[in-house]
């Protein structure tokens, strides 16, 4: 237990030290909401469009997507700190410690997830003032957020353990982040996509997080909520196990 809480503590402590990073990661979704959301919200302000977005205005439709994307990108980025730890050597400090490595990496994922969920909450609360979301939905949204954050922290860390430089990881991040974002139903319903692209949306974990959050915040979803939870939970366990396994096997070679 000591190791898990200590590693989580470290990740959170690092997060609170990096003020520019906090501001940056909160500013990013705000830019999406204001410059992207407000514009389209005005442009799509006619009945047919509203029907397409489940009867709500576009800005409200966008909120669950932006919250999910915030949690997704920030937790995925936790892989970056693994590479930084490799570069600056801190990883060795953990590798020579007489502790269970799966616990150490679990603690790390826990800490990183906490910080990204925190950012998600901040965005969610900000949006609550300017949109028509169901504020009571926040608690179940958080649970989805936890599953999402654990899944993508694990994926990010697994990638990072197999990679050796920040540039490479940045490249992978960019190549993966954008398609996953656009193919998640965050910006428009998946049903409006051509069938061959829709397949990619269906295998995208983010899709189910966006859908589940939308269910609780707006009351509309494409899949049954049980399915969203089910798929996210399975993916979470799978990627968490992969991350733990890879860290268990990690050497400095």
């Amino acid at each position: 237990m000591n190791v898990i809480t200590t590693m989580a503590y470290r990740q959170i402590r690092r997060f609170t030290r990096a003020r520019s990073r906090i501001i940056g990661t909160i500013l990013h979704p705000i830019i999406w909401i204001t410059f992207f959301g407000l514009g389209w919200s005005r442009a799509l302000n006619f009945p047919e469009a509203k029907a397409l977005f489940g009867g709500v205005d576009y800005l409200t439709y966008l909120v669950p997507g932006i919250v999910a994307i915030t949690i997704f990108t920030t937790s995925f980025m936790s892989g970056m700190s693994v590479i930084i730890d490799k570069d600056y050597g801190f990883l060795k400090e953990i590798l020579v410690a007489p502790v269970s490595r799966s616990k150490a990496i679990f603690g790390r994922i826990l800490g990183d997830s906490t910080t990204s969920i925190l950012r998600g909450i901040i965005i969610l609360l900000m949006c609550a003032f300017i949109t028509h979301i169901n504020i009571l939905g926040v608690i179940p949204v958080l649970i989805i957020g936890v599953l999402l954050a654990f899944t993508f922290s694990s994926i990010g860390i697994s990638f990072a353990l197999k990679m050796n430089n920040l540039e490479g990881f940045g490249l992978v991040m960019n190549m993966i982040t954008l398609p996953l974002m656009f193919l998640s139903g965050a910006f428009y319903p998946i049903s409006s996509l051509p069938i061959w692209i829709r397949i990619f949306a269906y295998i995208n974990p983010l899709t189910y997080a966006v859908d589940g959050m939308r269910y609780f915040l707006i009351g509309k979803s494409q899949f049954p909520i049980v399915m969203d939870f089910g798929i996210l939970s399975v993916l979470c366990v799978v990627f968490l196990s992969i991350g733990m396994y890879l860290f268990e096997k990690a050497t400095i070679e």
Partner: peptide
């Protein structure tokens, strides 16, 4: 090569190490 956590304080570095070792 240093294996310290550069973002943390000296105390925090030792604290984390101590906790990890029980």
């Amino acid at each position: 090569d240093s294996t310290l956590d550069r973002e943390l304080t000296a105390y925090e570095n030792l604290y984390i190490h101590g906790r990890i070792y029980g």
